[in-house]
């Protein structure tokens, strides 16, 4: 579990829904694992999330949406990251997301979607296996 550099994670709530139970549980779990966690609070626009992610120099963004607006909001975050030359920040998401939307989200560049009922261990394991600090990742940007 030791990282030379601690993983920096932005946990964010895009859109207008205020259901923050899940996102805050994830933020705590990341913090307890030893990551540096920045939580945006609710009601963020994709612009605000992308700008916070770049400013805070994060390795991973975790998005949560329970209002049904995930297709637009998640994809918009990824699109703006790429536009701002920050497409190497990994984006994952969770919430009330129909199975058929998962393919569309992954196609747009969301790396993984976690649905209700997923244990914290599964999420932490996925991050451990799939996300390295940007400073330690090989290859070009």
């Amino acid at each position: 579990m030791e990282h030379q550099t601690k993983l920096r994670v932005l946990v964010a709530k895009p859109g207008l829904d205020g259901h923050d139970r899940g996102v805050k549980i994830i933020a705590r779990a990341f913090r307890d694992t030893g990551y540096e966690v920045i939580y945006t609070g609710v009601h963020q626009t994709p612009e605000q999330i992308v700008s916070a992610a770049i400013q805070e120099d994060v390795d991973l963004i975790g998005l949560s949406c329970l209002s049904g607006a995930h297709l637009f909001l998640f994809n918009e975050v990824v699109r703006q990251l790429i536009e701002q030359d920050a497409g190497d920040i990994i984006v994952i998401g969770g919430g009330i997301i129909p199975e058929e939307d998962i393919t569309r989200l992954k196609g747009a560049g969301i790396k993984e979607i976690f649905l209700p009922g997923t244990s914290l261990d599964e999420i932490l394991k996925w991050v451990e296996e799939n996300v390295k600090p940007l400073s330690q990742r090989g290859g070009s940007k």
């Binding site: 859109g15 207008l16 829904d17 626009t45 209002s67 049904g68 607006a69 297709l71 637009f72 909001l73």
Partner: peptide, 10 residues
Amino acid sequence: PRAHAEIGKC
């Protein structure tokens, strides 16, 4: 613009 994709959903 804040309403986009949220209309009539919840």
